[in-house]
Design a protein around this nucleic acid. Structure first.
Lengths: 334, 334
DNA sequence: TTGTATGCGTTATCAC
DNA sequence: GTGATAACGCATACAA
């Protein structure tokens, strides 16, 4: 690992000049530039980002904060990460996934170190303590998701209200009147996306004069099975289900089949916020609302970098609904 | 973000003394230690790792290199990551997931920067170019997986040969004589784990005088479906399948059911290298060989940190087989 | 036990 | 257009 000093010596220029050509900071004669570049190549130089970070006060490293310890990293979440990291690289940053609890302490430590230039928060809760922690430490951040009061925050988010309305309307158009809604349970309720989706569903059902059937179960296939095995008994008149619980749906469909509930003939199912990958794992293939993970990962990084580079610009705030992807789990009401 | 200098001023000691108490490097009187600690608390000090890294030449950051751009991050892979990051934190390091292509260039850049103290490689191929890149840059690394010649490398790996032998033996014990073996295709063949597993299966089948039925398909549910729909026709005598292709298995089972092939009555299936989560997503619930992800993530970090801290110690090299977990997809031969 | 001083590799502000 | 040089925050050999 050659240093700038060594490159400078070999090229017989000053260390400052090397810095200028490395960063393109100032004009340098073609002749000397060439000498420097040759020296760099000969020595296999690459600039030490630690030194650069110390001098500049910035590291060009972004962290995606995911409570990976507590939450499973779903295939959907992964789509955010991969597109975000690609976009970050395009803009000259490194984005890494920093597994971290969602308690304030760990966030605070990471933020206080100056190791990262900014943070991208996933799995945002309505009242998310990480927001205050980052704010206190004056670390630029953006949310993928929203708190309950996001007006003065930078965020990009899935427009679940619009997505739920679309799913609900499509089912209505197919003649369904008794449409249930499923989410995760426990901590999921404090999740901004879940809370907003539930609200929207309730409003839509009420507005159309249909019953509100709010379901929840843990986010794993086993809980889905259990729910499915007692579904028909508990909800004999329900003909459609909007399921915002990706991991539970496969188990749910299996149990329904065992109980003789045919999908979609007896029950139409739309999986809210999923991926083609997950939708292909069930029988029948799921009709789903695709999470715009690739788009939002990219937008999230853009929002964050904009916050870092132009803090005075208007706050980036963007919503994007899911896209309806037809599968085989939806039919018009018998 | 208070600096050591500020802490020193407030505690009325020298900056060196602050460093001593922060790192426990040298003895400090209880009285002055207390003064320093009070000052740190008052100022909310936390040491700037960039400065520390520059001075010490080490960052205490480890990177898990995962070709996340090209490969999907499976639920199984995630178990490695979460346990590895937890273990790293226990030993005073930060482990982050660094999404990176598996071409040499990106690895080389990251390694040359001095930003990370070490790297943990996943999805290791038989002839993995990243190994040479890291070696050239003299960055300590450990593999989760193995190349074809791993003798002089630090690694931990799933003992797929042992696991495949166990699965095969169990099926034999249940009376199965025509046992097929499924893996991913294309690039998967260059994957150390896949290559070794295929070899082992072939040897086991041959040794027991049974036919060798080597199958492969892409690692997604759709490919599994396609395979399942023509399975019975192409392999009329096969009564058992060892499937080392986690994402394809759900689709495979669905298609088999459509074709009237009953699992496990007509075909026993063992999913090789999977998680309870994935196993619960199919009907019937899969019998599977559990990938020891949590254990290996931890071991991998230990191996890496040992390489960093005691480079002269013997190379850590450990294997751990999968654990058989009974589900409902295996039966004795009719 | 504590303080002083130097260096880690880079950036950026001055001079020249 | 190029060169000295002072930060950046911390660790540590050496002095006291």
């Amino acid at each position: 690992m050659a240093t700038m000093r060594e490159v400078a010596a070999r090229a017989e220029v000053s260390i400052a000049t090397v810095s200028f050509v490395v960063n393109g900071t100032k004009k340098v004669t073609d002749a000397t530039r060439k000498r420097v570049e040759d020296a760099m190549r000969d020595l296999g130089f690459s600039r030490n980002p630690v030194g650069a970070a110390l001098a500049r006060g910035r590291t060009r490293i972004l962290a995606m904060l995911y409570p990976a310890v507590e939450r499973r990293l779903s295939p959907t979440a992964v789509t955010f990460f991969t597109s975000a990291s690609r976009r970050a690289r395009e803009r000259g940053y490194d984005l890494v996934m920093w597994p971290i609890g969602d308690d304030t302490a760990q966030v605070s430590v990471l933020a206080g170190t100056g190791l990262i230039d900014g943070a991208l928060l996933m799995e945002v809760r309505l009242d998310d303590p990480r927001v205050a922690a980052l704010h206190d430490r004056r670390v630029p951040f953006a949310l993928i998701g929203r708190t309950s009061e996001p007006d003065d925050l930078a965020y990009v988010d899935v427009d679940f209200p619009a997505s739920v309305r679309e799913a609900h309307a499509r089912l209505r158009d197919l003649g369904h009147e008794d449409i249930a809604f499923l989410t995760g349970d426990g901590r999921a309720f404090s999740h901004g996306a879940v809370a907003r989706a539930r609200e929207t569903y309730e409003a839509a059902a009420t507005a159309s004069g249909s019953p509100v059937t709010m379901l929840s179960c843990a986010e794993d296939p086993g809980a889905g099975r259990e729910l499915g095995s007692r579904f028909r008994q508990e909800h004999p008149t329900t003909t459609a289900l909007i399921a915002m619980n990706e991991p539970a749906v496969p188990g749910l469909l299996i149990a329904l089949a065992h109980e003789g509930v045919r999908v979609p003939d007896d029950l139409s199912v739309i999986s809210m916020g999923s991926t083609a990958f997950m939708a292909g794992m069930t029988d029948p293939r799921l009709t789903f609302m695709r999470t715009p993970g690739p788009e939002l990962g990219e937008w999230g990084v853009d929002a964050l970098i904009d916050r870092i580079e132009t803090p005075d610009a208007p706050l980036p705030q963007r919503l994007l609904p899911c896209e309806y992807v037809a599968g085989d789990s939806v039919a018009s009401r018998g």
